[in-house]
Every structure is written in structure tokens, then in C-alpha cells.
Nucleic acid binder design. Structure first.
Lengths: 121, 121
DNA sequence: TTGAACTATGAAGTATACTGTATACTTGTG
DNA sequence: CACAAGTATACAGTATACTTCATAGTTCAA
């Protein structure tokens, strides 16, 4: 159970960004029920898992909305299995598309390097 | 040699976006020297190659600035070979990082599918 | 018990990447 | 030769994803 400062340190994500993610519904903390002098939110491993996923997904061009659809159903059961699989399979397809695009880019950049090498002989 | 309308049709990129890319220095057309009644810009295969690369790179989360650094040196020689390789090798590294992240996401999503399957037995 | 550090909230501001609107000129077809 | 369609330019507006600012309350170590 970590406070936001600790969560920020462990994930490398700035506190304002974490608050923004919380407001956007990507992560959520909860209050300690036995404390009522403050409104401090505590975060657990689930939040860290989600944030790691968010960082990866953002790095490869997924939007926060696309990411939200996935992390939303990680710990939820109120959705039919079919609906859950639909979202996940769609993302798996997108991932394969992105890998294909990255390989194409790689090829093109290596070709570019070849061209430069040859032209400077 | 295509006008912007044709370029848009062939790449699927809307005309205002193409103009935005041109203003941002990502692509460039040129006027027909023998015509001086208008300022119509014409685009060749180079523009299409660049736009295809831009579309791929954007889809995997590269910024326009990162993309510009690459396409800028495709047809330029005013930069030292070392500087060119620096940019290209940096991008190749980023590409491998992104592929690794995509594989990690894939693993996690497939694990998530397993969990859903088991819990709904 | 005081002050530095931490937390919460709301609202405004910023960067990136478009997207739309207005205006005006050019071209090709019937 | 009218006029629909295409082109250019400038500028305002929008969406996404933060980032900063202002304010105010809380906790904890010295």
C-alpha cells in the first residue's frame, strides 16, 4: 500500500501525471477506511502493473483510450467473456500490425544506411 | 509528378494534413519552372516514400520531430556520414525497444486471456 | 509545536498534431 | 465563358496528453 509519492518513485511517472491518469480512470487508489482525518489515496500492486502496461503501450503509440479499454477489464468480471476477448484480440492484432510496421521501418532504415555507405565510397 | 489532390488519394492522407506536413518540413513539392501563372506544387515518388514512412512511424509512436530527423537525411548529402549513422542507429535501437515492448504487451494480454478463461470455468 | 514535506482539488496553460474556416486565385469542361 | 473543382495561404479551433499554478489541508520529525 503506497502513497502517490512512492508510486511516482517506483514507476518514474510524475505525480501530476498519476493524478491525471487517476482522473482519467486508468488507475485508482483507495482510502484507508479506518482513517477519516484525510483523503489520502493508497495504491497497490494492481496500480503498478497497470502503470507499467500504460508506459509500454504509450511508447508504441496506443492512445490512453485504447489502453483504458484493456486495463479496465483486467480486474473486472461484469463484462461477458466474449466482450473481454473482443477487446484483447483487437489489441493483439494491433500489436502484430505494429511489429510488422517496425520491421518494415527497420528494413528501410538499413537500406538507407547501405545507400549512404555506397554513395560515400 | 502529382498535384496535392492526387497525393492525398494515393496515400490516404487528407490534404490539410499534407499541407501541415509540408509546412513542418517533412515533405516538399516543387513548382513547374515553365509555368508562372500559379504556385501549384507537384510531388514525386520521394514524397510518397516519405509519407509511407511517416504513416508507419506515427503508428508506432514516433513523433513528427523524430520522423523528420530520419526523412531529412534520406536525400541529403550535406551531413557527415557519421552524423547520418548516429540518427539512423538511434532509431534502429528505438525500434528494437518498441518491438520488445510490444512482445511484452502481447505476453501480458495473452496471460490476461488465460486468467479470464480459467476464472469462467 | 512549528515547519518542511506530503496530499488533494480545481483551473489554467502548454505541446503536439492535426482540422476547419475564410479568402482568393487558377484551371479545365460543357 | 461561366462555373465547378482544384490550389494556396493564413489563421482560428480542436483533441490528446500532459504540466503548472494556486490554494488549502495533513503528517511527521526535530
Amino acid at each position: 500500500m503506497k502513497l502517490i509519492h512512492q508510486l511516482s518513485k517506483e514507476t518514474g511517472i510524475p505525480i501530476p501525471t498519476l493524478r491525471f491518469y487517476e482522473k482519467s480512470g486508468l488507475i485508482s487508489g483507495r482510502r484507508k477506511t479506518d482513517v477519516n482525518t484525510n483523503n489520502y489515496q493508497f495504491y497497490d500492486q494492481e496500480a503498478i502493473d497497470k502503470l507499467n502496461f500504460i508506459q509500454m503501450a504509450k511508447a508504441v503509440g496506443f492512445t490512453l483510450n485504447e489502453i483504458k479499454e484493456v486495463v479496465d477489464l483486467w480486474y473486472k468480471k461484469e463484462i461477458t467473456q466474449k466482450a473481454q476477448f473482443e477487446v484483447l484480440d483487437k489489441r493483439l492484432l494491433q500489436i502484430d500490425e505494429k511489429i510488422a510496421e517496425l520491421n518494415a521501418m527497420k528494413k528501410q532504415i538499413m537500406l538507407c544506411k547501405e545507400n549512404i555507405k555506397n554513395r560515400n565510397l
